[in-house]
């Protein structure tokens, strides 16, 4: 996208935001969402991520171009549509973000703590390389059907653990994922909630992350989505790259199988 087009798109978002502030009907929100689709600042994250992927970085001065995301060293096309998956070298089921950290450690020589120091960005002061890399890799699966396998016993195990976590009630408010995402056609305030217990709902939701969040001015990854849902559930803080985060991602990604991947997207 040319800078002028992007500026026009951003101006459109501002106008649309004002329209939205005055309107209250679902129709107006649908119009606002349609207007957002005209230009997506997520492209800035995708471009930065592609640079990061190709740059020689870290103590070993290596690029990530030999990183195996599951379809062979360096294959990015379609990789995200098959994640999470079991990786023999790590002997672990990994989602994309965890795999990127693994490659930064193994190929580029970063230490693990350093590689995952900033999982989520916050404006221009605190940019997240992981967000940018995630935006780039996911964009290379756009138009590909979700096809997550449960062939390895650890993949099946992660799926089943993820299912248990989906229904796990806890905290001060007794909330589970299923509290908000277990019925069709529900909303919280005016925000529509996908029913993640149906194939259609899981497909629609999962294939639209990462997303540029207009309200936050930030590209948000699927790990962020889980992190912030748990915050609102009044749980403690979900650890980035934890087995719980990966198991839930496995459960939702697998349930989205057959859906056409279409992100990074743009959301309110």
């Amino acid at each position: 996208m040319k800078p002028s087009t992007l500026l026009a798109a951003l101006a459109g978002i501002v106008v649309a935001s004002l329209v939205w502030a005055q309107a209250s009907t679902t129709d107006e929100i649908a119009k606002y969402r349609a207007a957002l689709q005209d230009g997506n600042p997520a492209e800035l994250w995708e471009a930065r991520g592609e640079d990061l992927w190709k740059q020689k970085r870290g103590p070993k001065q290596a690029s990530l171009e030999r990183c195996d995301l599951g379809r062979g060293a360096g294959v990015v096309k379609g990789a995200y549509a098959e994640l999470p998956r079991y990786f023999a070298g790590a002997d672990r089921v990994m989602d994309l973000e965890t795999r990127l950290v693994w490659c930064m450690v193994q190929l580029q020589g970063f230490n693990e703590a350093e590689a995952k120091k900033t999982p989520f960005g916050s404006g221009s002061d605190r940019k997240s390389d992981l967000e940018a890399l995630t935006a780039y890799v996911t964009s290379e699966s756009r138009g590909v059907k979700m096809n997550v396998a449960l062939t390895h016993p650890k993949e099946l195990e992660a799926y089943r653990v993820g299912e248990k976590l989906f229904y796990y009630r806890g905290g001060t408010h007794d909330f589970a994922c299923a509290t908000c995402h277990g019925e069709d056609g529900k909303r919280i305030r005016l925000q529509d909630l996908p029913n993640l217990m149906t194939a259609e709902g899981a497909q629609k939701a999962y294939t639209s992350w990462p997303a540029y969040r207009v309200s936050q001015g930030e590209l948000r990854t699927f790990e962020w989505r889980l992190y912030d849902c748990f915050r609102q559930q009044r749980f403690p803080e979900l650890i980035f790259g934890s087995d719980g985060a990966i198991a839930l991602t496995m459960y939702l990604a697998r349930n989205a199988n057959g859906g056409v991947y279409d992100a990074p997207a743009i959301k309110r």
Partner: peptide, 15 residues
């Protein structure tokens, strides 16, 4: 699986 989910859960959050 239920036992494992419980173990995974406790290792996946921090205060």
């Amino acid at each position: 699986i239920a036992d494992q989910a419980s173990t995974v859960l406790k290792a996946s959050f921090k205060p």
